[in-house]
Structure formats: structure tokens, C-alpha cells
Write a protein that binds this DNA or RNA. Structure first.
Length: 605
RNA sequence: GCACCUGUAGCUCAGCUGGAUAGAGCACCGGUCUUCUAAACCGGCGGCCGCAGGUUCGAAUCCUGCCAGGUGCGCCA
């Protein structure tokens, strides 16, 4: 935290110098202790005296009361702290609006990032999305995409070199099932894909296959004919799978073609969502290398044979110590490929830390993977991290093809865009071009979807209720975007009235401009802005974008209060310039904060 | 059975490295647009923070036990 514009840090530095030496607290300790007073009337920054009680051997309220005159004497004339008030066990500081504003606001309002993190040496890879080809993307996949993408952005903001990686599931029984239905149950004509969204179209074929199998499974319990049909289907699927694994030319051609439909569709969706990958891995690449690894470490005695299968015994996972890596029939598993993938990451991309964004149900799996990699001798294994997140469900329970309640991504996108356009953008028709309206609808829809996916903490389930998601009032992405658009509008309007001058940090002009920012709304907005940089750091360190969501929502709420209470346009100078600084700082922080969530910040909406 | 997660307002959730009267959104009731975007703002209603113990000057927050729900647990991915 080397932020040259943090009010909290500046206050902490002053306190570290001014507090009696026996207290023994440095600026770093004090920054962590500083809090927000429950009511802004009390002050801008609070310092709790509980920690001093032990050293000074007095009751905290007494310490607070006694420190007031001491601090007042010790602080310089140019101190940021204008007023000190002891309230019970707390010292509450009110900052000098001119000096505080001049320190913080021009630095945020200016061009470039508000975060000045040093470049980190540790090279990271974040693996996320991992969709299966031949299946359609639904709202469940969306959570993973949004989370992974935001983590990439957050970690990069902290100076880490980050490789964003995807890992496509292009082999396995689900492919065989899809191709079974595609080849055996569709006519030549029915096998012709549509012009667009071919991946989704293919996914629906997979769903048909999965549902048919489930139905026959159910019916087969009582109906011998259905049981026979099921057995035949299973045999056929196994045959397809074996031919796929043997890379027989005829079936491989179908596989390549259909796979491309899925991949093209995924890429279109990633573009729409502004999600980017530096590296793309495929399960089909990890298949054989995985089996080679198994053989190698079986020879080395790290892996062992158990009931005909090969695996490793990890007693650290008490309830299920055996981790299978090769089936009895000699074929590979998900786990087998994960070992090969890890080797590919470590050796091929020279990374120090590998982050896996995968749902919480895989927690045991990844414990095993990391333990196994460690025993195989990979130094990076200790720095592997699984980011488990809870599932997305629907009001009637978990999504499932059998239940037929899957909400596909494209349906959500279309409904969201239509609703936003109809409710909020039609009023601009004629005034804006159709393309501009479509662009705004796209950006706001993305805001609603991504914020909805990120605002909840990772260990909470998300219950996806379409109607609730289409409501873009209150604590939603569009609320934050709206604040950004309104703030931009203020600047446009002000610039039309008279030039908006640029004010530099720490200058007399800045102090003069900020002197008048004394109302509750102005002070609270400024204080909220001051928390941005430290909040981003917490969100990145804890791999929790939801922390940033909560912050940005509070900031936005604060801005709306300011917006109503304090007119910018038409205010007398230098107050106008001061308020413009507040507005510009809010624009910068919101744009950067939303950017870290992968959400666009429209200039108008 | 074992492991992990969750339980806070009618609903959906913040807050959890202990600290000032427990906060939002939605829903419901009532106010605010001739001046910078009402996708907004303000007020009201609404809480044994799952239950019971313990630690502490102080517990929604830490510890223990219990209850309820979810998820995972060898040849699927």
C-alpha cells in the first residue's frame, strides 16, 4: 500500500508520530485499526482505543479523553485533522475539507488507474470457464465465467502477471451421447445446423439424448422393451466412444465438425461478455500425456495398483484416501487429465501459482490433485489454489436437463436486453441512433448479469429468478452504471456552461476548491472514495469480487445522496470546481471498479 | 456414517481477523421531478443474528455441543 493519495494512510502517519511513544503503534498498525464512525456527524475517521488499554493500563474511554489535548498539541498546523472528538472509547477525527480534498480528489480524478501497485514477481494462471463442447451454456456456467474473469482483472490490478486460461471438455461420454443421437436419430436433413448459434443447437441435441436415456432408464425398471432399448443405446454409445478414442477417421471428422460449432458459439459468447483468454487447453490434449504420467509414476512407486485400477493413496483426505488415476480398463479419468494439464501449465507456461475456478463440489478432487502433484515433485503444487463457488439454482431447485428447467445464457441475454430497451431506452429513440441504443442495452444487460453473478459471496448459492433479475432497480449492476452515467452527465452539462479546469494534487487551487466541501453528503462521498484502493486489495487478496461489489454499491448510494443534496452546475466558484472534482473522482473510481468486475461503464444510459 | 458449506427482517442477502444504537435490496404503506438523467432520493413497517452452553470488560462475529438445509464421498466429468 504505497498509495500517495490515501487519506486513511495520511491520518495514520500523523497519528503514529503524534501518539505517545509508549503506545508502540506504527502507521501500518494504525491504518488497520482505523474505522468508519457509525454516524458521519461524529467525524470522518475513527480510532478505537481498546488496543491501548493494555499498554497504558487505563480504561479506553479515559484514554480517548486524555489523548484529545495531547494530540491537539502534537499535530502540526498543516495537519489533515481539523477536529478531534472523544466519544466513549473512540477518538473521532474530522478532516480539514480543503487539505483532505486536495490530497485525494485530484489524484483519483486524473487519468490512469487509482491503484499504483508494484509489479509482482509471482506469475499466476487463472483457469476458468471450462465448458463442455456439445453442450449449451446456461446461467450456471455464467457464474464461473464472471468470477474467473473478475479474478483475472483484480489480480492484474495488483501487479501480478496473470495468464487467463480456459480448458475445454472436448472428450468423454457426453460427446458420445450427443453424437449417438446426432448420427442415429436425426435424418440427413435434420443434421444440418442453423446459420447461427450452432453450439446451442448441438447442445439441445445432447439434451435430447440425455433425456431419452433417463426416460428409458426409468421405464426399463418395469418395461423389458425399454430396458432392451436402453442396453442397445448404451452399447452403441460405448462403441462411439471407443471409436472416438481410437481416432477413427470417419467419426473423428464428425467430432471435429461438431466440436467447432460449439467452440465458435463459446467464442461468440465470450466476445459478447468481454471475456478473454490467453491460453486454451483441451481435454483431448491431456488424455494421452495423462496416461503416460500415470505409467511413469506407477514405475516410480508413487502410484499404486488397487483392485485393478491405478491411483495414489493420500491419507490426508481421511474420508476418501484413494485417488483413482487410471480405470481398471486402462482408460483415463478427469483426474488423469488434470495431472497432465498441471504439468503443461507448470512446464509450458512457467507459472508460480495456479488458480482453479471450479464449483465447490470439486473440493475433494482438487485436494487430491494438489497433494498428488506435490508427491510427484512439483514445487508449484503448494501454490495451487482451488476457488470453490456455490451453485446456481432455480426457484424450483437445481437445474437439470431431466427437469427441463435449464435457463440458457442466450435466453437470459435476449430477455434482459429486450426488457432494458423497452423500459429505459425507448425514450431516447429518435434522439440516439438505433446502434447507440443497442450498444447501451448490451452494456446494461451485461452489467445486470455480471453484477448479479458477482455480488453474492462465493459460498452462497445463487437462486436464479428471471423476473427478479430483469428488475434493474436497487442493488444491481445497472444502479452502479446509472450513477456513472449521471456523473458523466454532470460534467457534460458543466462543461457547456463554462470550462472545467483541471486541478492538480496538493496545489493551493485544489485546497481552495475543496474548502467548501463541508456538507455531510460531500464528506461522506469523499470518505467513500478514499476506501476504493484498499477495498480492491482485499477483494484481490481474498479472491472475492463480491467485496468490491458491496463497496461500489455503497459508493453509488453515497453519490446519489450527494447528487440530490448538492448542485454542481451553477454553484459559485471555487465550490463548483470542488464539486466537479468529487464528480470526476467518482466517475474514475466507478469506471475502474466496474472494469475490475468486467462491467462496462456507459457514459449515458 | 465421514468431510465441507449454509442458517441474520415476509423474501434475497451484507456485516464474521470480537468493539459505538445489527445494515441493504425486494415486497408493503406514505412523501419528493418548471434547474446537472426519478434506472433516483427521503420517511414508515419489519430482527430471541437457528438453539444451548462457554471464553471476554464486551459475541451476529471466537470455542464446544445440538438442530435444520445443501453438497461431496473408486472406476462420470
Amino acid at each position: 500500500m504505497s498509495t500517495a493519495h490515501s487519506l486513511a494512510r495520511a491520518v495514520a502517519c500523523e497519528l503514529a508520530a503524534a501518539l505517545p511513544s509508549e503506545v508502540g503503534l506504527g502507521a501500518d498498525d494504525i491504518v488497520d485499526l482505523l474505522a468508519k464512525p457509525p454516524k458521519p456527524e461524529l467525524g470522518d475517521v475513527a480510532f478505537p482505543c481498546f488496543k491501548l488499554a493494555r499498554v497504558l493500563r487505563k480504561a479506553p474511554p479515559k484514554i480517548a479523553a486524555e489523548l484529545v489535548p495531547q494530540l491537539q498539541d502534537a499535530l502540526s498546523d498543516t495537519s489533515l485533522i481539523a477536529k478531534i472528538l472523544a466519544t466513549g472509547p473512540y477518538l473521532n477525527f474530522t478532516l480539514d475539507p480543503g487539505r483532505a480534498g486536495a490530497l485525494l480528489l485530484p489524484a483519483l480524478a486524473g487519468e490512469g488507474s487509482a491503484i499504483d501497485a508494484a509489479t509482482q514477481d509471482e506469475r499466476l494462471m487463472v483457469e476458468f470457464s471450462q465448458p463442455n463442447t456439445h453442450k449449451a451454456l446456461h446461467v450456471g456456467h455464467l457464474r464461473n465465467m464472471c468470477l474467473g474473469d473478475s479474478l483475472v482483472r483484480l489480480l492484474r490490478s495488483q501487479g501480478y502477471p496473470v495468464i487467463a486460461a480456459n480448458y475445454f471438455g472436448d472428450v468423454g461420454t457426453h460427446i458420445a451421447r450427443c453424437l449417438w443421437w446426432y448420427l442415429d436419430h436425426l435424418s440427413e436433413e435434420q443434421r444440418q445446423p442453423p446459420a447461427d448459434n450452432r453450439g446451442e443447437w448441438l447442445g439441445k441435441i445432447y439434451t435430447k439424448a440425455a433425456m431419452a436415456l433417463a426416460d428409458w432408464e426409468e421405464a426399463g425398471k418395469t418395461d423389458p422393451a425399454a430396458a432392451k432399448r436402453l442396453a442397445e443405446a448404451k452399447a452403441r454409445i460405448t462403441e462411439i466412444l471407443q471409436r472416438l478414442e481410437a481416432r477413427e477417421p470417419e467419426i473423428t471428422k464428425v467430432w471435429d465438425e461438431t466440436k467447432k460449432w460449439s467452440l465458435d458459439d463459446f467464442e461468440e459468447i465470450y466476445r459478447y461478455c468481454d471475456i478473454h483468454f490467453d491460453v486454451r487447453f483441451y481435454e483431448s490434449q491431456a488424455d494421452e500425456p495423462g496416461l503416460e504420467i500415470v505409467e511413469e509414476f506407477l514405475q516410480k512407486g508413487v502410484f499404486e495398483v488397487s483392485q485393478g485400477a491405478v491411483g495414489i493413496f493420500n491419507p490426508e483426505v481421511k474420508h476418501m484416501p484413494f485417488f483413482m488415476l487410471r480405470k481398471q480398463d486402462g482408460t483415463s479419468l478427469y483426474a488423469t487429465k488434470d495431472l497432465a494439464l498441471a504439468k503443461l501449465k507448470f512446464d509450458g507456461h512457467n507459472i508460480d501459482r495456479s488458480i482453479y475456478v471450479v464449483d465447490v463440489r470439486q473440493s475433494d478432487h482438487f485436494r487430491h490433485v494438489f497433494l498428488t502433484l506435490e508427491k510427484m515433485g512439483f514445487a508449484q503444487a503448494k501454490a495451487c489454489q482451488h476457488v470453490p463457488y456455490e451453485m446456481v439454482e432455480l426457484p424450483d431447485g437445481p437445474m437439470g436437463a431431466r427437469k427441463g428447467n435449464v435457463v440458457l445464457f442466450r435466453a437470459l441475454r435476449e430477455q434482459m436486453t429486450a426488457r432494458i430497451t423497452e423500459l429505459h431506452l425507448e425514450k431516447f429513440r429518435g434522439q440516439w441512433s438505433d446502434a447507440e441504443i443497442a450498444q447501451a442495452a448490451h452494456e446494461v444487460a451485461l452489467g445486470a448479469i455480471k453484477y448479479g453473478m458477482l455480488a453474492r459471496d462465493v459460498n452462497q448459492k445463487i437462486v436464479f429468478d428471471m423476473e427478479a433479475w430483469l428488475d434493474v432497480r436497487g442493488n444491481t449492476g445497472p444502479y452502479l452504471q446509472y450513477v456513472h452515467a449521471r456523473a458523466c452527465s454532470i460534467i457534460r452539462e458543466c462543461a457547456q456552461q463554462s470550462p472545467v479546469v483541471r486541478v492538480e494534487q496538493h496545489t493551493n487551487a485544489a485546497v481552495e476548491a475543496c474548502k467548501g466541501l463541508t456538507t455531510l453528503e460531500e464528506r461522506e462521498l469523499r470518505n467513500a472514495l478514499d476506501r476504493f484502493v484498499s477495498t480492491v486489495k482485499v477483494a484481490a487478496d481474498e479472491l472475492r469480487p463480491s467485496v468490491l461489489c458491496t463497496y461500489l454499491y455503497e459508493l453509488s448510494k453515497q453519490f446519489n445522496r450527494f447528487y440530490l443534496a448538492c448542485k454542481v452546475k451553477g454553484s459559485p466558484e471555487p465550490l463548483r470546481t470542488g464539486r466537479i472534482l468529487l464528480v470526476q473522482a467518482t466517475i474514475s473510481v466507478l469506471a475502474e471498479g466496474l472494469g475490475l468486475l468486467g462491467i462496462p461503464a456507459p457514459q449515458r444510459m
